[in-house]
């Protein structure tokens, strides 16, 4: 009986009630994000284990030189900024990237808030800013990868035969032990892949909003959900990507 009445309002959980007071779609997004957090945890846990099984650099930061004998100090590896060639600016560029991602998370939550009010123009505006932030972050990451792969001009570590190594890839690394570069590629690469798919999802949501799909009076929505719930669900994913970057930033760049 209860099912019949709630079906008239929209799609329900077919049991006549709303488990955990969340709509079906949002709850599934939460559990997907939990499982995705496990994948990222696996990468970060591997990083912890591999890093602490290598010797740490013990001298002064100013005397630091690249060598395969010890794990490098991240602030001496990531000190390049575009257009400022040869100027050592440790962690400045990665700080800018962090700020861009936090900022795009803010514009995303503003889009979700606009969706709650049913304000389509505001949703469009904030979704566009979010997409722009995501694309800018990806551009920064592309530059950082290029720089990391190319390497410095002969300041790098020497290999087993005493030859200077230029740049880094999966089998050679001028900054330190080979697993350092491997973990850099895998962790930031897996995160960048998530940002890419997040941007694609954001573009789809923007497109749907601009077409007015969420405002159609005949469109059925989940019970307990607002008309713009798709913005909220994709927003959860986008915040998760930001959250992962907070952890990558600490464990890979700061510690």
């Amino acid at each position: 009986m209860a099912t019949a009445t709630s079906s008239e309002q929209g799609i329900d959980w077919s049991g006549g009630n709303l488990p955990l007071k969340a709509s079906w779609g949002k709850l599934m997004m939460w559990f997907f994000l939990l499982s995705d957090a496990f994948s990222f945890s696996a990468l970060l846990i591997s990083y912890g284990l591999i890093r602490y099984s290598h010797p740490a650099y013990s001298g002064k930061v100013s005397d630091f030189e690249f060598s395969q004998a010890y794990w490098p100090i991240p602030e001496r590896v990531f000190e390049a900024v575009p257009f400022l060639h040869g100027v050592p600016l440790p962690l400045v560029f990665v700080g800018i990237m962090t700020f861009i991602l936090i900022m795009s998370s803010v514009t995303m939550v503003l889009a979700v808030e606009a969706g709650h009010r049913g304000d389509r123009r505001d949703v469009e505006k904030w979704m566009l800013w979010t997409i722009l932030g995501g694309i800018t972050f990806l551009g920064c990451q592309a530059w950082e990868w290029t720089h990391f792969i190319h390497g410095t001009e002969g300041r790098g570590a020497t290999d087993f035969y005493g030859n200077v190594i230029y740049g880094a890839n999966l089998i050679q690394n001028e900054y330190g032990p080979v697993p350092f570069a491997n973990l850099f590629f895998f962790i930031t690469g897996f995160h960048g892949m998530h940002v890419t798919s997040g941007v694609v999802l954001n573009i789809i949501i923007f497109y749907n909003t601009a077409l007015g799909i969420y405002d159609r009076p005949d469109r059925k929505v989940d019970e307990g959900a607002s008309r713009y719930e798709m913005v909220e669900k994709v927003g959860l994913y986008w915040h998760f990507v930001d959250l992962v970057w907070v952890f990558v930033f600490t464990f890979f760049y700061l510690v």
Partner: peptide, 20 residues
Amino acid sequence: PMIFVGWLLLAMILEGGSIF
């Protein structure tokens, strides 16, 4: 579940130290 993941992280860092 994330608290248990934190536990695993701590355990694996200690494991890395003993490998070293």
